[in-house]
């Protein structure tokens, strides 16, 4: 009996391939096609050339969304690349109650993003806990507009993302730290290297690839941010609609019974192009690291 016919491997991968083509490749291709049309949710459309892309250029909300994404990335990437590493270094030690602290730090990851965002909403509201405390302690006379100020809302959302992401990336670093040679640390200590020197010369090179991976993951998720901004600022994007992300704009454009699927598709293509940049950067950095 022969099993090694030429088509055997194709048959084996066929189900996965069909799944991939049907639910990933074709929707992506179709999105590209739709981006050149004015299709709506329930009615057909026609080819409109680059009109949707011209609308993107003219849309001030897209500019706001891109600016917000860049800021989100600029703040989240360094914070979520370094802070989880420092936390991982703290909790990797075999000290009493470390298991408890690891659990506490990981807890925000387990909690639903919506639940966490709603809790933060209650904390930061005009009549929320933070404003209440600030006013009780006479730190401020008026409520701080965490959820209504253009920039305060954005940075409240960034703080939420960082807080929620710390535990997740800490776990990734914990596994990476297990691969750092302990003898190098001991040798460096014997040579008189202090804790900072050992961190920079032994730990960081040991987890460099993981740091690159984390940085890219954070960058991509920052560019695709939705839940935190949506819950804290609402679907309109805060007072004045400037606290929006590209994903929120896609959702707004495609929603309802007369959603503009053509325009939403062109925004999706833009989001794809924007998020692919960090991925290409990862490939480049990986290649350099290997060299």
């Amino acid at each position: 009996m022969r099993f090694h016919r030429w088509y055997t491997p194709w048959l084996l991968v066929a189900p996965a391939l069909a799944w991939l083509l049907t639910f990933s490749v074709w929707p992506a291709v179709n999105t590209g096609i739709l981006s050149f049309t004015n299709v709506r949710t329930l009615t057909g459309g026609r080819f409109v050339g680059l009109a949707n892309y011209r609308n993107i250029v003219d849309d001030p909300q897209v500019r706001d969304a891109l600016l917000n994404s860049v800021l989100y990335m600029a703040v989240c990437v360094p914070l979520l690349t370094l802070l989880p590493l420092l936390l991982a270094l703290l909790v990797e030690r075999n000290l009493p109650f470390m298991g408890f602290f690891r659990t506490v730090l990981y807890f925000p990851v387990v909690a639903s993003a919506v639940v966490v965002a709603v809790i933060w909403q209650w904390l930061l509201d005009q009549r929320g806990l933070v404003n209440g405390l600030a006013q009780q302690l006479h730190l401020t006379h008026e409520a701080i507009p965490f959820l209504t100020g253009r920039w305060l809302l954005l940075f409240s959302s960034i703080s939420l993302t960082v807080w929620k992401g710390l535990g997740y990336y800490m776990i990734i670093y914990l596994s990476a730290l297990g691969n750092v040679n302990r003898e190098l640390h001991e040798a460096a200590a014997v040579d008189g290297a202090g804790i900072v020197r050992r961190f920079l010369s032994v730990t960081v090179p040991g987890v460099r690839r993981t740091m690159i991976l984390v940085a890219v993951l954070v960058a991509v998720s920052s560019l695709r941010i939705f839940t935190e901004l949506y819950i804290l600022g609402g679907s309109a994007g805060g007072v004045g609609g400037q606290d929006v992300s590209l994903v929120m704009l896609i959702q707004n454009a495609a929603g309802g019974t007369s959603g503009r699927l053509g325009y939403a598709s062109s925004l999706s293509v833009l989001l794809f192009l924007v998020t692919i940049v960090p991925m290409l950067l990862l490939a480049r950095l990986n290649r350099k690291a290997e060299q």
């Binding site: 309109a236 994007g237 007072v239 004045g240 609609g241 309802g256």
Partner: peptide, 18 residues
């Protein structure tokens, strides 16, 4: 009048009233 338009109206009214 669509959902998109309602979003724009809410945004602009909020800017005006504030």
């Amino acid at each position: 009048w669509t959902q998109d338009m309602t979003t724009v109206l809410k945004q602009q009214f909020a800017l005006a009233i504030s």
